[in-house]
Each structure stands twice: as structure tokens, then as C-alpha cells.
Design a protein around this nucleic acid. Sequence first.
RNA 1: GCCAACGUAGCUCAGCUGGUAGAGCAGCUGAUUCGUAAUCAGCAGGUCCCCGGUUCGAGUCCGGGCGUUGGCUCCA
Length: 646
Amino acid sequence: MASTIHVTLPDGSIREFPAGITVLAVAEQVGQRLAHETVAGKVNGRLVDLRTPLEDDVELRIVTTRDPEGGEVIRHSAEHVMADAVKRLWPGTPIDAGRQDHSEKFQYDFRFARPFQPEDLERIEDEMRRIVKEDLPFERTEVSRRDAAKIMSERGEAIKLIRLEDIPEGDTISLYRHGEFVDLCRGPHVQRTSQIGAVKLLEASGAYFKGDERNEMLQRIYGTAFASKKELDAYFARLEEIRRRDHRRLGKELDLFSFHPEAPASPFFHPRGAIVYNALIEHMRERYLHYGYQEVITPQIFDVELWKRSGHYDNYRENMFFADAFDDVQERSSSIKPMNCPSHCLLYSGAAHSYRDLPLRLADFGRLHRYERSGVVTGLTRVRSFAQDDAHIFCTPEQIGSEIRSLFDFIFETYDLFAFAEIEIYLSTRPEKAMGEVAVWEHAESVLAASLEERGVAFTVNAGDGAFYGPKIDFVVHDALGREWQLATIQLDFMLPERFELTYIDSENAERRPVMIHRAIFGSLERFYGVMLEHFAGDLPPWLAPEQVRVLPITDAVTDYAESVCSLMKERRLRAEVDHRNEKLGYKIREGEAMKVPYLLVVGEREAQEGTVSLRLRHRRDEGAQPLGTVVDRISNAVRTRSREL
RNA sequence: GCCAACGUAGCUCAGCUGGUAGAGCAGCUGAUUCGUAAUCAGCAGGUCCCCGGUUCGAGUCCGGGCGUUGGCUCCA
């Protein structure tokens, strides 16, 4: 081991230190102020505790309370402080473990006789502030497994002992201590509790131990923490923005859809909402012409035998609705479809197929019903009644590659249209319980991976996460607020062609089994609708806006002119209305803005005489009077090109 | 399904420790004819989610159910 090491700092400077120096000591030599604010180090890209000794030459970045990673360290430390506060208030409460999620929240689970109440959270929060004020130093110690077990059992931490057993043999076991509180923890942690500038507890809920519903339910508390009050306020401002964009709220305000207890988790689309829904479908229909799909319409209710044959009855029954007529209630004989694939298999098997017919791409906007447990449904993003832009491609094994390539074009083109910029791609491979031969799987997986590589897009492999019938590629988009949504999916299926004995005749006149590709680009139309609404914050591009143009007459002396303007818009196939109400212009503008109509056309005596309209674009000021012809051309052009600009 | 909170007019919400309901917006009627984000006045509107219990009396307390929300779990 070298007696001195070289540390490369972010500015490129290299400094020499004695081996074994800690991150904190380096920070101290760089500057006192830095040392005061530092909470961790990033050594060769890995976040480490600042008490970590450096033994070799490294690249080091000092992480301070102001860095994003600093926030993580602060929240992680706040977890410990929260657990400490709970134990101070209710001595002897066994603790489980804390964790952070991606949304700047931390959580900690406790074995507690009753659920935590809002008043408890206030008390805990006060206690946390006290601990922060005490400015207790965090200490790290590395211990043997035996010592860790001894310390935890002395402290009555029954759950921690189980957690200890889960730590793999050979891993370093570290304890973090501040004041009286000790936790089994990997770190890193801040230097002192006072570096946690602002904390707020958010909510309590039950949570199963290790996330398994067969285990005992622990009591979980969520909170957040930042280096300063200002950052905490910014966090709540972000939450407020999320609330403002919530598609459930927008759906109500814009009169798009509603829910009714008589059909839980099943959206009712209002006239305005249905226009948007249908515009999405129409867009897909147009693209289907380009990509060579044929649309089909299939039934809603099927003999249950179909689902036994497809395997859904055995594997998916708890998510299915059954629909029995009065004369056959003894047996569950009919079921409402949760998926379209079996219908499409029936269609395929209804005729002989030549390799020349393939690929056969069958699209279906059929309504699907899935029973989702009551606790999991939310708004449009998880519903019991929905449709997909669903299609099944029947092709030869050799055609898989070209089909996948074409699908990539389709998917990226679609996400461009909606300005979903950041897309994550996951390739899920053969699970343990898989159907079919390993060689077929491996071939399919390599085709999928090769297509992704050829496309030059980054993807993550989720080993063993494929469906039992075939590997799949999932597309996760980020909306305008950075939240993740799984929308598109491409799934290869070797099982259904087998179960339905689907065949085609190849060029050698031999009977062969086709491959089936399940794919959806929007995914569920309902979910896409919700995500899209939030992404645009309700400001739909003109081609999707339920009401594209609203004509605002200033007085009823210009009613006729307003009507003629509106008729012209309608002749040009634009969705236009006139606001005839006996209100002042300011009121009508306010309403038009609130309903997020992209184009407001103000008409008064002047416009009526000159044959113009005063154009007002959504969220902008008056653009002034312009010839009617110019304005209608502009609007229909924006609609036709599916522009996001007005 | 599990844990918690919530459910009052079409919407947003008020209603203290039990004494049978209130505001703003929206709606309707009338007046006003108005130039770029709310004109004025009047009227009407509620099985306080449902069922049961405690009580002289329940929107309010208790139990059960339904729904919604946030989590957990699930997501072929």
C-alpha cells in the first residue's frame, strides 16, 4: 500500500495526501467552508461516507448540502433522526429500516401497536427538530456480524436481527450512531444532525414487512428533508404544480370525463372528452394505413372455453369479469374479454395462410375489462374499463427483426408527436417459469437486443422479467414533470400460436407455426390520455383540443357576423363555437382561457365591417385584427400538421 | 385485498365540544350592449354517501357497507 495517494478533484487538480486520509479531512484541507458544508464524497463516481479512508489514487468530488446527492444524504440521515424521535417518544419501539424513493421522500417502518395518527406525526416532527438542534455528530463503526447481532438484540431490535441475517456473508457491516440511537446502516450520513436544515413528515400508512402481504404489517411514516427551508418550500411548490396538472382535476375542470360509483374505476367520457379520445384513435387509424395494419372488430363476451384454451382462465382468472345469462348461472360459462389476443387467434385460424400473407397485422380498439383490486385503481391511469391501440402481428420467425424495426419507427414517431423526450427502454428476458424451448427464447431475445442495438438506443435488460410466453420490450416515457409511465410494449408470444394451433404454409410447402407479436403504442388509451393531459397541463395541441376555435362577439349587434365566422370554421372542419352569452368581453375571454381553447376570435363592429377577426392565442395577448381568410388558413394548417404550436 | 384520511348544493369549501344546514362560483330570471382574464340585482338549489346503533335530539358520536385519495401489495 502506498504511503501517499493522489486525489484528483473536479477542477482537474491533483493533490497528494497520506494514504488513509478521510474524505472529510481532504475537504478540510481544501477549505474550511467546504468542510463545514460537506455531507459525503463521490469517489470514482460512487457515493461514500465522508469518514471513509482513501487508500488508493482516486477521483474525488466533495458532496455538499447543496448538491442533489447531498439532498439524498440529508434525507437518509433524517430517516435516522425520525426513527430516533419515535424511539424517544415511545421507548422500545422496534425499528425496521428506512428507504428513500425517487420523489425526494424518505420512509421508515416501525413495529407499533396502532397506526400513527396525524397528531403523532406532529409530535415526532417536533422531536426531530429538537434532535437536529442538539447537533449530534453521526458516528460510523464497522463491526463483526456477532457484535452487530449482540448490539441489536440488547436493544430489543427484533426486526433488525432478521435484516442482519439478510446481509450477504462477507459484506462489511456498519453501524451509525447519533446520540443514543444506533442503526444498522450502509450510510453515508451527514456529519452532524444540524446539517438537516428542514424536515417535514408527510403521511403514515401500513406497509408489509419486506413488502410481502403474507408478512406482518408494520407502520410506515413518510417524510422529506432538505438542507434549507427554502428547498423544502420549493419541494412543496413542485407538489402543488403536480396537483395543478393532475389529470383528474383537469378532466373535471375541462369537462372531459367523470367517474360514478355505479361503475367504479370506469371512466365516462363527456362529449368534449370523447372528441379527444376519438382524435387519438383517428390518429392511430391514419398511421395504420402507413404501417400496414388492418383493423378488426371483435366481440365483448366469449364462451369461457376460449379462455381455458388461451390459458387466461388458469393464469388470469382473478382479473376477469364473468357475464352469465340467467339460464346458465350454475357455471361460469361466459366472460368479458380482458384482452384481444384470443379473438385474433380465432380470426387467424379461420382461414388458411400462406407465407405470402405474412406478416398479418390485426388492430383492434376493442373495449377491455379487467377486474383490478379496489386499492390499485386511480383516475385514468389504472382503470377497469379501457381500450388499447392494440394489435397482433402474425409473422414468420424470420420476420421478427423487420417487424421490430418498423415498430421502433412507429413508437418513436408517436412519442415525438407528443414531445415525450426522455424514453427508457427495458428488455425483459426468459423467466424461470417459461413456456417453449430455450433455444427459441434465446433466438428471440437476441433478435430483440440486436434490433435495439441497431437502432442505437440505450436499454436496460431486466433478466427473468419476461412474460412466461415470450420476451418483451417496454417503453417508459417521462412526462413534463419527470415522472415515469409505462406506455408502449412489444411482446413476443410463442404460446398462443401453439395453443390455437396456428399455422402457415412456407415456400417449401411445409406447415409451420407463426410467431405472434403483441404490441401497443399508446398502451391503454385511458392511461395515455391521462398522462398526455398532465404532460400538456391541459393545453392540448390544436388537433386534439375539443373546441379549437371560439368566436367572441362583443355585442349582439354582430351576432350574424360571428355566426358566419363560425360557419366558415366549421366548413373547414374545425371545431368552433360562438359564445353568445350576454356577458362582457373580459368575461368571455376569461372563460375561453379557462377552458384552454387554443384560438379565441374577438369580433365587434370594426371586424364585421372589415371582414376581419381579432385573434387571441391561448395564454397570450391580443394579436390584433387579421383578415378572416388568413386566420382560418393558419388554424387549419396547425391542425392538419398536428403542430404543438398555435 | 391491507393501513390511513376523506365523503355537506353541479363545482370548491365552511359548519366549535350533538340542538334537524351556509358561502363563493356555476344555474335560472331581469336589467345592462359592453373592445381583450369575472357588470349588477333577484330567485332557486341539499335523502349532509348508504344502512344500522347510542341519544329527548345525529351533518356532528359508535358499528358496518360503498366510493374517493395517499400508501402497501398486485400489474400476462
